[in-house]
């Protein structure tokens, strides 16, 4: 095999064993539209809180899909709940309820 000199960086590797399907299903039961997200980042672009702190619905959902619940909560802790992300979401996801549900389920873990 030709060695191109590339390798996976350990930090971005996804450990599927850590992905807690049951907890994620609980989230989907509360907010089924979470599946619709295509991670376009509109939510993060308009985010009021992201101007001051690390806050991004897109990154939070991305983290959840990679099995990183704690990181998702971290991403949403600064959320001011203003609702701009819901207004701009091209997929019509109720991001506010998604945020509440993530904080409720993963915040309690």
């Amino acid at each position: 095999m030709v060695d191109f000199g590339f390798s996976l960086s350990p930090s971005s590797r996804i450990d599927l064993d850590e992905f807690d399907r049951k907890t994620f299903d609980r989230l989907l039961a509360l907010e089924p539209d979470a599946k619709k997200c295509m991670e376009c980042g509109s939510c993060s672009a308009v985010c009021t809180a992201s101007r001051y702190t690390e806050t991004s619905v897109r990154r939070a959902l991305h983290a959840l899909r990679n099995g990183c619940g704690a990181q998702a909560v971290e991403e949403l802790k600064g959320c001011q709940f203003c609702g701009k992300c819901t207004m701009v979401c091209p997929r019509g996801i109720n991001t506010r309820h998604l945020i509440l549900s993530i904080l409720k389920i993963y915040g309690a873990l």
Binding site: Y52, G78, C79, Q80, L103, G107
Partner: peptide, 24 residues
Amino acid sequence: LTYDYSYLSALSAPGSSVSSAENA
């Protein structure tokens, strides 16, 4: 539900020399 708004303390008042963007 958990929240963390500690970043708000860095917000500046008008005319103040501390800028919010720098503190972000």
